[in-house]
Design a protein around this nucleic acid. Sequence first.
DNA 1: CAATCATATGAAAGACCTTGTATATAAGTG
DNA 2: CACTTATATACAAGGTCTTTCATATGATTG
Lengths: 91, 91
Amino acid sequence: MKDLVYKCLNNANRRKILYCIGEEERCVNDIAECLDLEQSLTSHHLKDLYDCGLIEKKRDGKKIYYKVSEPEIVEILEKGKELGDKLEKRC
Amino acid sequence: MKDLVYKCLNNANRRKILYCIGEEERCVNDIAECLDLEQSLTSHHLKDLYDCGLIEKKRDGKKIYYKVSEPEIVEILEKGKELGDKLEKRC
DNA sequence: CAATCATATGAAAGACCTTGTATATAAGTG
DNA sequence: CACTTATATACAAGGTCTTTCATATGATTG
């Protein structure tokens, strides 16, 4: 259970999704299009993120809008990216 | 390549190892004993962490001492833990 | 209500991870 | 040099993850 946050972070597509809906909410189709992912794949990942509690959703007519509910996750993402970049330069 | 940091974080034993050698260096055997892990498993995980660049090693006679080389990883770990705890309370 | 649009779900293939067992290497010791 | 201690590596079994394809559900529209 405690591993869910790290598990969510351990996939490039999920990380992209988090960045994508970190500032403003977006509907599934927009997310998929924006990141060039299959609709169903996007949906699967959104479910993982949602089940983990990192994002929230809101229905509006046919569309469902998602956004990050825990800003901390974006901070972690940024720290992770910084560190990753730093480590990459070394090799 | 950029995923290595997140991959390293996505395993409870590796996270324990990072905590264990975050402050002071320790040799493989001590780490294994301290965390109650098999020697070879400890060694496997240390290799992953080392290859990723998160920890450094130093030989002293027969023993090899490891310690965290990037303190940022411990910060990330702590932020991740805080967030994980927060999310867990919800369910 | 049939058709359409938007999203979710299930199943399955293949890739990837974790772990354990057995064995190898490397350093130190008698 | 044989032996022991400390660590690393190879391999294989089992499990988990990611992705795709096909299909289902749910809301809206004509």
